[in-house]
Write a protein that binds this DNA or RNA. Structure first.
Lengths: 131, 131
DNA sequence: GGAACACTTGAGCAACTGTTCAAGTGTTAT
DNA sequence: ATAACACTTGAACAGTTGCTCAAGTGTTCC
């Protein structure tokens, strides 16, 4: 009965190989929500843009070639998941990445997806410059 | 005109604060695809389960209290994004996390979402035991 | 060979998501 | 106070996604 070498899986094995609930259910739902918000091309593009520093909505909109409303809606989704920061500066509202953790998630996924072919040296170095 | 201290954002500023395309467009789409696959509670649960070691579909189904077809469909989505490994063992097919990178992504998100209240010591230590 | 087991797959339908449009809020300039 | 600017928001519609069911594939056992 070489269970460790051969992880076979008869019904009686299932009973012995009990799995543990590693995290509280709420944590999984929150994490899924974060991934869901990031799991959209245009929204992830936005995050990579903000990874290079703060920007106001108009600036983002012109950079992406989209209208204000669309960008604002995308930012709302990201904001609902706590992924971006937001502060007013006169007439403008500046958005940025919420914290280093978000920067890391985006950075890691991009590094993985581009398999080392990207130059990410400019990315997320401004996140801590919140002052 | 204190631009560095005050990142204001008049139209003429937008032109000077040019952003760079850090990654090729394809990489962003691939990364978004990965996040999209992870951005579903039940599917993320599956990944955390596989983070504790390989399991066959039947075992997963009984553990989650769902039917085979539903689990198989979820695994298909994860497989299409290259997040899980798959190998046959007799009648059974064993699934696991594809690589350490996937384990890291899930681990980081859970750690973030549970704010240090989870015991993740059992997680993903088996990923490299592919032999 | 045939039967049983362990999945996989395509189709169908309900539920969700993203974009656009039109109307609204808050701030600055006059 | 009025106008202009910089967004935000709710509703509506199209496109996408996830689950269930029924039929299919591949493997083992007899």
């Amino acid at each position: 009965m070489p269970k460790l070498i051969d992880p076979a899986c008869a019904p009686q094995d299932h009973l012995t190989r009990q799995r543990v609930a590693l995290v509280q259910p709420g944590a999984i739902e929150r994490a899924a929500g974060i991934f869901r918000a990031m799991g959209d091309g245009p929204r992830l593009r936005l995050l990579t843009l903000l990874g290079q520093g703060e920007a106001c909505v108009t600036e983002i909109a012109t950079a992406e070639g989209e209208d204000l409303s669309t960008i604002s809606q995308r930012l709302r989704v990201l904001r609902n998941e706590g992924l971006v920061s937001r502060r007013r500066n006169g007439k403008h509202i500046l958005y940025g990445l919420a914290d280093q953790h978000v920067a890391d998630l985006v950075f890691n996924a991009l590094a993985h997806a581009s398999e080392g072919r990207a130059d990410l040296s400019r990315f997320s170095s401004l996140v801590t410059h919140k002052e």
